[in-house]
Design a binder for these strands. Sequence first.
DNA 1: GCCGAACAAAGTGTGTACACTTTTTGCCCT
DNA 2: AGGGCAAAAAGTGTACACACTTTGTTCGGC
Lengths: 235, 235
Amino acid sequence: MTDRETTQADTIRLAIESEIFSGSLVPGTSMEEGRLATRFGVSRTPVREAITQLVQAGLISKSAHRRAVVSELDPGTLLDLFEALSELEGSAAFLSTMRMSPDEKQHLMTIHESAADNLRRQGDPNDYAKLGSAFHHAIVRGCHNKILIETTDWMSLRVLPYRRFQVMTPGRLKKNQSDHDTIISAIVAGDAEIARDNIQRHTLEQGDALMRFIALNKTKSVERLPRAVNEEYSL
Amino acid sequence: MTDRETTQADTIRLAIESEIFSGSLVPGTSMEEGRLATRFGVSRTPVREAITQLVQAGLISKSAHRRAVVSELDPGTLLDLFEALSELEGSAAFLSTMRMSPDEKQHLMTIHESAADNLRRQGDPNDYAKLGSAFHHAIVRGCHNKILIETTDWMSLRVLPYRRFQVMTPGRLKKNQSDHDTIISAIVAGDAEIARDNIQRHTLEQGDALMRFIALNKTKSVERLPRAVNEEYSL
DNA sequence: GCCGAACAAAGTGTGTACACTTTTTGCCCT
DNA sequence: AGGGCAAAAAGTGTACACACTTTGTTCGGC
């Protein structure tokens, strides 16, 4: 049953990744190799390897002889990240408008309509969020450029740990849906420039909203939280 | 003399990196941990760590239980890379047009004029290439977006091992310079859209030319290719 | 009581050993 | 000869040991 293709380091990397995305590992948390090792029931070697990989992926940072720390993005960098992401998604949308196959366009529309439906019957906001991210992803994939897709995914990944702060007010949901409406019409109409501009602005606004929300809550809770909670990652 | 900040893994990573960029390590070469270890006079542990890092950087590829291989970009991926890079540089130029300080613009112009001068007096093509890359870099840095800069640099890096094939004919040099002319005028004039479109097309064309050249020479033995204008790219 | 220096504890970086996987070698069979 | 097939060799993944660095603690001076 041992998978010869999947090394333990991979398993552990995935596990840590998922803990970061799920929010159990809050940015700023420091991790110690030994504990992770015993927790996962392996030696420190594969743990170290997993950490190295995650460092390069940007999800955790580390310097020589210091503990690894779940990457913490200061507001400036977070803004840069969203700006870059919005540009990339813009480029992807531009290319996608001209390159998506009818099937891909159909798929995109299906996603969009499921989202609209979810909104109409006030379905699960989590489902809506999932559809939203599928929408973006479908557009990006449509550009048929591996590098662009990879890079966009990578940036989305780095933002992901912060997405969980996102508030989903009915107003925001509606705005989101109408944004998507505009984008998809542009793609269907074959107007690449419009598609680019709209998804670009849309993503940038999303980031803006998220940052504003984080900034608001920062002063209230997170910063004043007892340091013990954030500082050590104990089992 | 031992540097407490620089770990052996780092040293080795840098060494391998530089060998890849300098061309001593041709894409496709497979590397074996043990040999590298004895060559660098260390154990396999730091070598493995260096390799892991380079894998994440995209310069080396590796799968479980198989030897590490210097990444080889198939033509499709190389094209994707240039397309993505051109989009990113376009975005950067767009932002730079609005964000560069007078000092930065001045610096950019200085570079551009040095290049023009080099061209007029038929100076060293290596110097010209260096100025060209400085030109691009100055524009990208001008966007003041850390992530965008990092990502662009990363992509340029991945293309670097292939730049050594670039031929610098007088005609190409002249075209290059006039492209840069157009770009810089747009930036100075504050026309962000024009700046974006022009640098985007410019970089894409560069990539195209490079790929055409590689395709032509593919039939011949790759290792036998002239060690062209590439010293400047060593790190 | 507070600060800083010496010491102790904990943690990271690297060498080495060994199990398991892949690759190569060499043999047999046709 | 040439194409499998098995055993040997080579190579990778992981555990573990130990040196050196960082972090935490204690204790004496002010």
